[in-house]
Amino acid sequence: MNEAERPTVLEVQDLVVRYGQQTAVDGLSFSISRGEIFGLLGPNGAGKTTTLSVIEGLRKPDSGRVVIDGVETLHAPLAVKAKLGVQLQASSFQSELTIEQIARLYAGLYGLSLPQRQIRERLADVGLQQEITKPFKKLSGGQQQRFSLMVATIHNPSILLLDEPTAGLDPQSRRQLWDRIEGSRKRGGSILLTTHSMEEAQAVCDSVAIIDHGRLQAFGAPKDLVAMHRDDPRVQAVAHGDVTLEDVFIGLTGSAIRD
């Protein structure tokens, strides 16, 4: 399918979010088409999680808007949320519940009354059949990530929002994550994810946005971004040999460590 034929499913327009005096997102705009894997990239504190929290309806923007399938999110928050599958950067579930009970709760909240057998199948899909009686906190970091992703996709959402989904995953789980993301895309879903791995972004994202201080620095397909910024002196200064997306990222956002 050609870029132009794909309908836009998610559009962020001139988004501004402030925390008190600090402007975390500063006039950010981008859009995502159906079936696209979109990477939101940026150093620590760039405003990625904040941008996602507005899309997810957790926070009202100070100005700007988010449009999903042609509907402004603030106008129909619940209908919009029903289409989204969300994995937060730091997920937390009631500590007294087992993961089987949590899965059942979230299935219900997305409108599915799944029998126990199906809940267990889904847990087995992500390799958690041994852990069904454990609370979420007693899972290992990678198991928690897998469980969160399973909950996020329990209702086959048309848009998947994943905040650093591969953080802490072993190679097997990471491979499985990409299989799931690919599966979701095949069903017509779109994926918006954040990651700090530029290699990963270059390998799997159809397009990426690099943001810093809440502002868009670059936007496009990874290979186009590399081609476009290859001769930028800031990128040249950090590249060793072939210019990669990571060189572009560091060139555009600087090499200082962020707070």
Partner: peptide
């Protein structure tokens, strides 16, 4: 926060 991102 996790509950609030569901359509609840």
């Amino acid at each position: 926060q996790r509950l609030r991102v569901t359509p609840t």
